[in-house]
């Protein structure tokens, strides 16, 4: 639940009457400490309602005046409507690291992806990478090559080799494992590919 930002609203109200104002004047008028006012002022500046003309001198902007005119109240809630879009995964996740290796252009197999992409914090990297690769093949991102890498265990069939067939950009496609059939969502093109 969002609450009203009382101090920010009073600062904005004072600036709408007298602009520009110095920090010392605001301290005197509002009866609050300078550092508290500065903190609140930073938040108002980020919203674009106030400009800092020089150190300790603030002026209201046209956007701020418009906001006051419309009777707006600064609250702690969201600043705008939710877009409904998922934020791109900014973390260097296992999938992202695997995608980085795939984009380098060479043919690869699962063991080579594991060796290049895993780090100490990953849980069951081999299984996760195997599943990621399997779904990317079904979604048409990877092209299986005719020859396999030889396995080292007795009776091993070896490992399939692949090449990236659809390089759509920096961000790794994500798996939607709860969909039926499983889907691959591409953050770069905003497309969805079913894994069939």
């Amino acid at each position: 639940m969002s609450g009203t930002a009382d101090l920010q609203n009073s600062i904005l109200a004072h600036l709408s009457n007298t602009s520009p104002m110095r920090l010392a004047q605001l301290e005197h008028t509002l009866g609050r400490a300078g550092n508290v006012i500065t903190q609140a002022m930073c938040k108002i500046i980020r919203r674009g309602f106030v400009d800092r003309l020089e150190a300790g001198l603030y002026a209201i902007t046209n956007a701020g005046l418009q906001f006051i005119k419309e009777g707006g109240q600064i609250t702690s809630g969201p600043r705008e409507k939710h877009s409904g879009n998922r934020r791109p995964n900014r973390r260097m996740s296992l999938g992202q690291r695997v995608w980085n290796v795939m984009r380098m252009g060479d043919a690869f197999d699962v063991p080579s992806l594991v060796a290049a992409a895993q780090n100490t914090t990953d849980k069951a990297p081999q299984n996760n990478i195997q599943r990621y690769v399997r779904h990317l093949v079904k979604a048409g991102y990877l092209h299986p090559l005719p020859t396999r890498t030889k396995g080292t265990r007795p009776g091993s069939n070896g490992f399939s080799r692949y090449r990236l067939a659809r390089d759509t950009g920096d961000t790794a496609p994500t798996l939607r494992l709860r969909s039926n059939p499983v889907e691959v969502f591409d953050q770069n093109t905003k497309e969805v590919f079913p894994c069939v």
Binding site: M92, N100, A116, N119
Partner: peptide, 8 residues
């Protein structure tokens, strides 16, 4: 390869 994969 590993360094590039880890750092993008």
């Amino acid at each position: 390869n590993r360094w590039v994969a880890q750092n993008g």
